[in-house]
Amino acid sequence: MLSGMSENTEKSSSEAPIGPSSNEDNERDRPDGGALSLPSFVAGSGSLDRLVDTARDYARAAASDNTLKAYAKDWAHFARWCRMKGAEPLPPSPEMIGLYLADVASGSGPSPALSVSTIDRRLSGLTWNYAQRGFSLDRKNRHIATVLAGIKRKHARPPVQKEAILAEDILAMVATLSYDLRGLRDRAILLLGYAGGLRRSEIVSLDVHKDDTPDSGGWIEIFEKGALLTLNAKTGWREVEIGRGSSEQSCPVHALEQWLHFAKIDFGPIFVGTSRDGKRALETRLNDKHVARLVKRTMLDAGIRADLPEKERLALFSGHSLRAGLASSAEVDERHVQKHLGHASAEMTRRYQRRRDRFRVNLTSAAGL
């Protein structure tokens, strides 16, 4: 079962959106700003053409790579569904989209029914794709809104949360790793991801210095008392302060220093692949899926939740378990956790706290009852 968890340094490619026909290169069918062009009444020139390319680059940067990949798959699935029904995806038809949502929610086709959150995300993907092609999709149209409301009322369930990795768990997971080059890297990934409350994409996007690579998602500065991470995160730029641990075995900053030193990394991506013999660091940045596979593998090796079958244990934990673990384990004021995780509201932070005293603030008693 774990054979698919081996190290993978290649970025997965997204499905190409399906256009109006396989032989037609329609500008409106190109996502990621590909449809941006000069107005028909403006004559092209070298400088204007370069500005068009620049504008397209900025349009592509409006969403993360993972979001763009998901949106591309959303469009491909919807376009394929339309053609199977004898229709075309362009221009947008609220009636057809309403039928599409009903189909994926009911699971009437060969594929299983989608969850409400996935359907909502897929509708966002279609809205984005239509906007990229010069169309406007009104989600409030009755053919869409009423069907979606009915789906939510009938099928909505509380969100399924990944299990949090607590302090004793992360120490046990780290203890399963060897001290070769690959083990040093994975130890730094786990401890840094846990102490920083980082998303897996944030971990692998880190560079040694600012502006080292075009695809950098941030960089790290190491000081005597800890490390400062500057992240271009999902919610914008933010700084994450990671202090040194109580011992070298559990210190994320020490683990990072050890990896950088022995891997001889002083420029570019921090977390990269290693050679087959594990003795040499490569130049290719790790895929964020490596973090999820690493969490699952070390969780199994450490015997965490051994009371459950292996399949259930694998489903319980993911890269997000590191982020939830910090929120659940840090015994500090909730505001500090909220800032550390980059949450806009305390309510979002509480969703990550798998263990907390929900009745610490008792308004019933405070009201005199």
Rank of each mutant, 00 (worst) to 15 (best):
E239C: 09
L229H: 00
E221N: 14
P214H: 10
W219F: 15
S216Q: 13
K225M: 04
G236P: 10
L231V: 00
I222V: 15
S247R: 00
S246M: 07
E224H: 11
D215M: 07
G236M: 02
E241Q: 11
R238L: 11
S216E: 14
G217S: 09
S250G: 07
N232M: 07
G218I: 12
I222Q: 12
S216L: 08
G236C: 01
W237V: 15
S216R: 03
T230Y: 09
K234C: 05
G236I: 00
T213S: 13
E248M: 05
E241W: 14
L228E: 10
T230P: 00
I220F: 07
P252Y: 09
T213I: 09
R244G: 10
N232W: 04
G218D: 06
I220L: 08
G217I: 05
S250D: 09
D212N: 12
A227E: 05
T230H: 03
I220R: 05
G218V: 13
G217A: 10
E241S: 10
E239I: 05
E239Q: 15
D212S: 12
K225N: 14
L228G: 05
I222W: 11
L228N: 11
G236Q: 03
G226T: 04
L228F: 02
S250C: 08
L229W: 00
S250H: 03
E224Y: 06
G218N: 05
I222M: 13
P214K: 08
S246Q: 12
V240C: 12
L229Q: 00
G243M: 10
T230Q: 07
P214N: 12
G226A: 02
G245L: 00
I220A: 11
E224I: 07
C251A: 04
E221I: 02
T213Q: 14
G236H: 02
W219M: 06
W237N: 09
G217Q: 08
C251H: 01
V240A: 10
I242Y: 11
S246V: 12
K234T: 02
L231F: 01
K225V: 07
N232H: 07
P252E: 11
F223C: 07
S250T: 13
